[in-house]
């Protein structure tokens, strides 16, 4: 099973993503948070329990802390402990600034302008499954 963590303050986005995943039929287990602070706590507990997170979808514009802030926290605390995670930044923004910024973080695999599409999921999941087989 692929362990997916979704952090997005907009619950409609999480709702839509869950439906898309259900329809796609990928072997995926999803945990989602609308509050990034709680998500960080969850990551900490995963590290403590030695539980893997294969994939992280991280929204950029959130009220308590931005996706960039979350990355920063992960860097100083846990990023080294979840090295096999693939991180994708998500945003409704279509501004180049976000994708440019994403490129500056080596731990970030990509930037997606919402909505998340079946094509994108297919690409990401096939990569992860291939990596798991290897």
């Amino acid at each position: 099973m692929i362990q997916l963590l979704v952090v997005d303050d907009d619950d409609i986005n999480i709702f839509l993503l869950n439906h898309l995943l259900k329809k796609s039929g990928y072997p995926v287990e999803t945990v989602s948070f609308t509050n990034p602070v709680e998500a960080l706590q969850y990551i900490n507990s995963c590290v403590a329990d030695d539980k893997k997170i294969d994939l992280l979808f991280l929204d950029i514009n959130m009220p308590q802390m931005t996706g960039w802030d979350v990355l920063h926290e992960l860097r100083i605390e846990n990023i080294s402990k979840i090295p096999e995670s693939r991180i994708y930044m998500l945003s409704s923004s279509v501004h180049a600034t976000d994708s440019e910024k994403a490129a500056q973080f080596p731990e970030v695999s990509g930037f997606i302008s919402k909505p998340v599409t079946p094509e994108f999921l297919s690409e990401v999941f096939s990569t992860i499954m291939l990596a798991k087989q290897l």
Partner: peptide, 14 residues
């Protein structure tokens, strides 16, 4: 421009 495009686009996409 950034924030309005984001905040207008988010509900529209949804």
């Amino acid at each position: 421009a950034y924030i309005t495009s984001h905040n207008l686009r988010a509900p529209a996409v949804n």
